[in-house]
Design a protein around this nucleic acid. Structure first.
Length: 233
RNA sequence: UCGUCUGGUA
């Protein structure tokens, strides 16, 4: 079973979901690893409905899901952009009463945000005891995607007060909000922060900075950042 | 270490 799981994993990494499914179908015995692998494969391949169908099939076969399985199936709901199915899965997870895992909570926050329900996302987020940088990034990114830029900046301030260090992902999100709201001073502070931590070589950061300065009417700085991005080392 | 969470610009 270990060998077959590894084979499934290999096929999925090669993008051959059909071969992976073939191996999965022919297995005599499947464990939670096998199911998670194939579900993650369908999720990545853009077939979230198939992942959800298999999940309920697994449930009927009395295979016990674990936290990793939950994160995977939540991602399928996210990709399906289905708030309804997401809530159904969330309810199921609560019913299972597994010890709570930050990865699961973070995936739920991201799912609710991408399904358009910032209220549900905030509700889950507030319940996370040990918020990691990814917890903060997930909720802030959700606000930005929903155009709630003021809220994004407010959460960013809370994040700094809570003792979490913003990373490159955080900075990209918050810079976008500054660009949209035309808050130039805050954006420049972010730029200073970026330079202090040496994040300016990150290509997401670079392109977001260029965008920010362009929107702020500082084309001179934008082009300087742009040129710096293309300098060798 | 057989499987999981967040960021591309208009």
């Amino acid at each position: 079973i270990f060998v077959e799981n590894t084979l499934i994993n290999t096929y999925i990494r090669c993008g051959s979901i059909a071969d992976a499914a073939q191996v999965f179908e022919n297995m005599n015995e499947r464990n939670v690893f096998s199911w998670t692998l194939i579900l993650a494969g369908y999720e990545r391949y853009g077939k979230p409905e198939e992942a959800l169908r298999l999940f309920w099939q697994m449930e009927q076969q009395k295979v016990t899901a674990d936290d990793v399985m939950f994160v995977t199936i939540i991602k399928a709901c996210t990709r399906a952009a289905s708030l309804e199915q997401g809530k159904e899965i969330h309810g199921y997870i609560v019913k299972c009463g597994l010890p709570s895992n930050t990865f699961v909570f973070n995936a739920l926050v991201d799912m609710y945000a991408k399904c358009g329900s910032m209220l549900d996302a905030m509700h889950v987020f507030e319940r996370i005891d040990e918020k990691t940088v990814i917890s903060w990034n997930s909720i802030i990114s959700g606000c930005v995607q929903m155009g709630q830029h003021t809220q994004a900046l407010s959460l960013y301030q809370q994040m700094k007060c809570s003792g979490s260090e913003p990373d490159e992902v955080t900075l990209v999100c918050v810079l976008k909000s500054c660009g949209s709201l035309q808050i130039v001073e805050e954006g420049i502070l972010l730029h200073v922060y970026i330079l202090r931590f040496g994040y300016e070589t990150n290509r997401y950061i670079g392109s977001t900075l260029v965008d920010f300065y362009s929107k702020s009417g500082r084309l001179d700085i934008a082009s300087r950042v742009f040129s710096a991005m293309h300098e060798p080392d």
